[in-house]
Amino acid sequence: MTGPRDRWSELTGGHAGEEYSQRFARLAASGHDIHGEATFCAALLKPAARILDAGCGTGRIAIRLAELGHHCTGVDVDPSMLAVARRDAPDQEWLLGDLARLDTLGLNPGFDLALAAGNVIPLLADGTEAAVVRQLAAVLRPAGLLVTGMGLDAAHLPLPEPTVTLTEFDHWCAQAGLTLRQRYATWSGDPYYEGCGYAVSVHSRLTM
């Protein structure tokens, strides 16, 4: 039995892997830093940390974090995205699966950090967001971190209007035993302010 279709699949039809990869390759070739998320996460971690890249896409962030010495597992629901990741980094662990059902993938818990970048949360299937947050919290070690990046308005989303508010997101996190530690407006660490269109949030799993 399958659940509701995620918004990413509705937008792309599940065939965006090569196009997505080429877009970032063009950005890199033009001199843009495409590793902001990885740099941000690496600054939060001790060496050789275990990281779950939830909604890893083509593996851009997980591959960079592995280059920095961390142990990364990527999970995505889009086979076309994972095909690129597996081609570019065949020795890393890439799992095809629904984030709302992480517990069916045989993951060993105790991750130091779970990452949901690239508007993963707003692009989930409608009604599954709280379940996904619970699943991500469950794979973290005590004091482990959930790091998310999401657009809060149409200018920062591939959607006509936002699907998640920070109030809702923080409520789901609290229900899952996570507490907000830091919030920024960009992956570069610019201060978050009320009304800005993007939020990078760092939540920590409670130790009790």
Rank of each mutant, 00 (worst) to 15 (best):
Q92D: 10
R64M: 14
F169L: 14
L123H: 07
A143W: 07
L95V: 15
H70Q: 04
S80I: 09
W172C: 02
H70N: 10
G3I: 02
L136D: 10
P160F: 00
Y20W: 06
F111A: 07
G195C: 01
G177Q: 02
L105V: 10
R86A: 14
D33G: 02
L27N: 05
H35C: 06
D153E: 05
M1Y: 08
L52T: 10
G59H: 12
R86T: 04
C196H: 01
A138C: 02
Y20C: 05
C196Y: 03
A176F: 09
P142D: 00
F40M: 10
T2K: 15
R7N: 01
V200P: 01
A48S: 06
A138S: 13
C41E: 12
P162K: 01
A185H: 07
G195R: 09
V202E: 11
Y192W: 15
Q92K: 13
G57Q: 14
L136Y: 06
A42M: 02
G69A: 10
L159A: 01
G195V: 00
I63Y: 04
A125K: 06
V75S: 08
L113Y: 03
V164D: 08
D33L: 01
D98G: 05
G110K: 13
A130S: 14
A155N: 01
R86C: 13
A100I: 11
S188K: 00
R183A: 02
R205F: 01
L157V: 01
A199Q: 00
I34E: 06
A62V: 09
A62I: 09
A49L: 08
A176Y: 03
N119A: 04
L102C: 12
P191A: 13
N119L: 03
Q175C: 10
Q182N: 10
R60M: 04
L178G: 14
I63N: 14
R60H: 07
A199S: 08
L166N: 06
D53K: 14
D103G: 13
A42R: 05
S80D: 15
W187R: 02
E67R: 08
L136W: 09
F40T: 03
L123R: 05
Y20L: 02
V139H: 04
A62E: 11
A125H: 09
G13N: 07
A174G: 08
V77Q: 15
A28M: 01
A62F: 10
D91K: 15
Y198Q: 02
R60P: 00
Q92M: 15
E194P: 11
T179W: 08
A185N: 06
A28G: 00
L27S: 03
D190P: 08
D126I: 02
D112G: 05
T39D: 13
A199M: 07
Q135A: 13
C72S: 09
H71L: 14
A143P: 07
M150S: 05
E168G: 02
V77G: 15
G177N: 01
A38F: 05
D76Y: 07
A38E: 11
R64K: 07
